[in-house]
């Protein structure tokens, strides 16, 4: 087990974990009940997923110009992803999109049971 093998293993673990979090973000986008809760899935899981994959690629590349450029992408995504999420959430709030609440849901089901 030399250093190169170790680095390769680390790359594989990091990129696979990143792909997993990207998948979690997508599944969250499908399963969660309303717009505001769905933003949680893309705003966080996707950011971590892209960061993990790029960290894996940086380890694969070693210290080079490419790694620095990849770091720039991480910084850019880390700054723009939450900003875009916030802009969309604000737009939805001003469009009067009603958030989904647990209590409201329970009340509705109770009413249905009474009927």
């Amino acid at each position: 087990m030399d250093l190169q093998h170790l680095l390769n293993l680390l790359t594989i673990i990091l990129t696979a974990a990143g792909a997993f979090f990207l998948l979690v973000g997508s599944v969250g986008l499908l399963r969660l009940p309303d717009f505001y809760t769905r933003t949680h899935a893309t705003g966080k899981a996707d950011t971590l997923g892209i960061m993990l994959v790029i960290t894996g690629l940086i380890i694969n590349q070693g210290i080079s110009v490419n790694s620095a450029k990849l770091l720039i992408i991480v910084a850019f995504v880390g700054l723009t992803n939450p900003t875009a999420t916030n802009a969309l959430a604000r737009a939805a709030y001003h469009l009067r999109l009603k958030p989904w609440f647990k209590k409201d849901k329970q009340k509705k089901s109770e009413k249905k049971e009474k009927e």
Binding site: G25, V27, G28, R31, P99, K102
Partner: peptide
């Protein structure tokens, strides 16, 4: 960055949980 890691694990746990134990609040 550490907070982001924690956040994503939390979201992953909630999303993959069969009952989805969410209780949103504003």
């Amino acid at each position: 960055v550490w907070q982001i890691v924690v956040a994503s694990f939390q979201v992953a746990k909630v999303v993959l949980h069969p009952k989805m134990p969410i209780d949103p609040a504003l």
